[in-house]
Amino acid sequence: MGRRLALFLLLAPAVLWIGLLVILPHVEIAILSFSQRVAARVYTFGFANYLEFLAEPVYWRTFARTALLSILVTLITLVISFPVALYIAKFARGKSKPVLFLLCLIPFWASELVRTLGWMMLLRETGILSHFLQAIGVIGRPVEFLYNDGALVLGLVYGGMLFMIVPLTNALESLETAQIEAGYDLGGSHLTVLRRIIIPHAMPGIVAGSIVVFMLTVGNFVTPVMLGGKNGLWFTEQIYSQFITRFNWPQGSAFGFMLLLLSTVIVWIGLRLTGQGFSETLRRS
């Protein structure tokens, strides 16, 4: 009897948390997303919100744009981070290894908002980059580097970097240096060794990092709002504006489900293509 009571007491907070803060709220937005307004304050079941998503080009274009740019951001983050992780794992010696690794973590102690503020200061027309380029004579007058897709991608890549470098470094740590040297001894070029030995070994890290970066990018809000251009909407902004600005909760809920669907499908495809499991991947990162 005492053990059953103890189990019940231990179960209660977990069930309340998952039930009241995760499952039921998602059931609620699922219901909302399938309710359509037929008159003032009268709603019925229907697909109007999803049809509206397909009918209005701004909505599905923003959706497609968010998906494609997020994939692009993930790939760029991977390409930039890989040499850094390889350097930390295999080239850095002695004290420099933990120091370099720790230096990668530091920027992520600062909040997303602070990092975004930093990029705004660097890139804006009156900002540091523009001033610097004028000072060395590359440009003749102030140039606006902010509010375009380049700045948006830059900010998102920066925000995802850590979540790529950590799993990559962990994966590459376990690669035996002797194995790389054997590759060279057998006459392999840099490229062959990279392609045949290093990348296959790093695959679990590549998948884990890419999935986390993709999910963080798709769900990002501050970076696209602050760094992106006026015409460069992000899908989370659409959800926010339906919910908070227009107070159209059913439409916003449908958008929310589209976003969940997007990240689930892309992550599932990624796992399928590389033959990795979800839980292990999540734990690894």
Partner: peptide
């Protein structure tokens, strides 16, 4: 249950927000 406990990490923050607001 232990799998569901991992879910909140993969749900975008905006969606956690709107779902809790609506509920």
């Amino acid at each position: 249950l232990s799998m569901m406990m991992l879910w909140p990490l993969v749900i975008p923050g905006v969606i956690l927000g709107i779902s809790i607001l609506a509920f």
